[in-house]
């Protein structure tokens, strides 16, 4: 098996300078590893720091302590120490973040939003468009909507556009922040299929899923996070 992610002794404390320097310890001494083809589910009560951990893994939050190594182009790179340019390169080719929210510029058509990750990776526009269409169809977005910007779509439709955009170009490491929240059963099943396909292709996935059924089916393993925050507060 190929080690894809190794988290060593990671801690995160937020310091709120403008609120009397209040310190909020969220995570402490977290450690786990993920190999290619695995989908590890982060498990713990609300407020335990699952989302914080996912954001640390993406380089969106800064680690207070510890190392987060990610296999990038055959080499283990520490996200906690890498400079901005390196992290951007890792995100371009190795690491992606799938949230339940679509964040795009208002007037861009759906098909362009979904094809963009392929175009960025050098896939010719016509081929990227064909694959984007296939992915949207698979996620039950009617073809009459493809040329429209998703701003006016329902919440569920926007979420599926986001899933389509995220899974059209799977990356070696994928972080999933409740990608199935508020989807109906049929579309949830498709997301589970997409996760399975990514695993078969050798991706390492780390995710948060509140839905027990999704957890059971998508996850190959569970990692328990205990709440530092709650322990400190108690």
């Amino acid at each position: 098996m190929t080690l894809m992610v190794r988290v060593t002794n990671v801690s995160k404390t937020f310091v709120l300078h403008n609120q009397d320097g209040v310190r909020l310890p969220i995570l402490s001494a977290i450690g786990f590893s993920v190999e290619a083809g695995e989908c590890v589910v982060l498990h713990g009560p609300s407020g335990a720091g699952k989302s914080t951990l996912l954001r640390l893994l993406y380089g969106n939050y800064k680690c207070t302590d510890g190392r987060i190594q990610i296999r990038h182009e055959g080499e283990m790179v520490d996200i906690a120490q890498a400079d901005a340019r390196r992290i951007l390169d890792i995100r371009r080719r190795t690491l992606s973040y799938v949230s339940q929210f679509l964040r795009v510029i208002p007037r861009v058509p759906t098909l362009d939003i979904v094809k963009e990750p392929l175009v960025t990776r050098g896939v010719p526009v016509a081929a990227a468009e064909a694959r984007a269409g296939a992915m949207l169809a698979r996620l039950n977005i009617p073809e009459r909507l493809w040329r429209l910007p998703p701003a006016t779509f329902s919440g569920g439709e926007q979420q599926r556009v986001n899933i389509a955009r995220s899974f059209i170009a799977i990356t070696p490491v994928m972080l999933l922040d409740e990608p199935t929240a508020s989807l109906d059963a049929r579309n949830r099943d498709i997301v589970i299929e997409l996760i399975e396909e990514a695993r078969m292709a050798g991706s390492a996935l780390i995710g948060i899923f509140h839905d027990e059924a999704v957890r059971e089916r998508a996850a190959s393993r569970r990692f328990d996070i205990h709440s530092t925050n709650a322990a400190e507060a108690a």
Partner: peptide, 22 residues
């Protein structure tokens, strides 16, 4: 303060940057 744009905006380290982003 400097760094990756989303990191600086989502997890600002300096008091002044925290004030700006809040």
């Amino acid at each position: 303060e400097q760094g990756l744009t989303d990191q600086v905006l989502d997890d600002p380290q300096q008091a002044y940057t925290q004030l700006l982003t809040s």
